[in-house]
Nucleic acid binder design. Structure first.
Lengths: 162, 162
DNA sequence: CCTGTCGTCACCCGATCGGGTGATTTTGCC
DNA sequence: GGCAAAATCACCCGATCGGGTGACGACAGG
């Protein structure tokens, strides 16, 4: 399941608080500068225009902050899904080794166990993920965010028509 | 429909024009409302505050418009890589069917051919991609942007150059 | 102590895969 | 028509995979 939408609200709330503080500071700054003097000197229209201009810049900055992508997508492993599926640490090791596309024999050598053990872990993994093939296991694991998807952690971009 | 990158610039310019028009309209509206009266009634502080609030909202809206991503990563298929590898259309069909994690028999049924044909296409595909397993073929194809990776938009963009 | 879970390994067996060779038909192009 | 590429299908064969069962030791928890 994807990250709930409301999870970004704290960040937005913090930004809004920062903005509110900046606004209050601006108002106090104007008061401190005895803006009434400036109002008499420049005229109310000019004062309102200047304030509006400043507030527009502030709003643009806030708007950009609000819509900025939480950029790196740091890939947080879905521990809840792991627990609900009952995946053991060793099964996760096999799952991570699975994405390399190697054979059971090679994975066994990498993990330092027997190919039969890898087969056992894989069989249980397939059962828990409710899949029947290695490729489906990888796809399902990625959709459940058990393992990082391509472009999630390492940003290796091969540009088309290179 | 192809959407060149520079095409978003007019959209931004349009947005800026809309913002400028809205600002002018607001100023005129204030003038029309004889804001001097409101300034005397509410006090300059309140007037400035209201104008600032309105302009901040306007600025936030503009900021959000300016930083809105234009369809992030529409996934352009790497036709150059396809050509350089010598991949035939049918081999690409098999490659796309491969990501589903189905067996050769199922892919053959989906493609309307014999399992032996799928095996032949797969063998040539493995040779051209220089891999030895289905999973490696998918990983390599994704890294070469022959097929969309999870997280990429599923809409394929037609490129002018064949 | 007993039970449950986990990790490890073994064996069997059928299905599938990967690799190779060969053949035929279709398609597009000169 | 001739040619080349592509697509199709068949067969063989060894390797691997997927599924199932059984077993053993370690280890935590009641």
């Amino acid at each position: 399941m994807p990250m709930p939408r409301w999870a970004i609200l704290p960040a937005m709330g913090r930004t809004i608080l920062i903005y509110a503080a900046a606004l209050a500071a601006t108002v106090l700054l104007l008061e401190w500068l005895q803006y009434r003097f400036w109002a008499r000197e420049l005229g109310i229209e000019m004062l309102v225009g200047l304030v509006g201009l400043g507030c527009v810049c502030l709003g643009i900055w806030v708007g950009m902050r609000l819509t900025r992508r939480s950029d790196p997508a740091p890939f947080t492993r879905n521990e809840a899904a792991i627990r609900s599926l009952g995946l053991t640490p060793r099964e996760l090791d096999v799952l991570e080794a699975l994405v390399g596309g190697e054979s059971n024999k090679t994975m066994a050598r990498d993990l330092g166990v027997s190919p039969n053990t890898v087969k056992t872990h894989l069989a249980r993994l397939f059962g828990k993920l409710d899949v029947t093939s290695r490729v489906q296991a990888i796809e399902t694991a990625r959709s459940l965010r058990l393992i990082p998807a391509p472009g999630d952690s390492d940003r290796t971009i091969a540009r088309p028509d290179g």
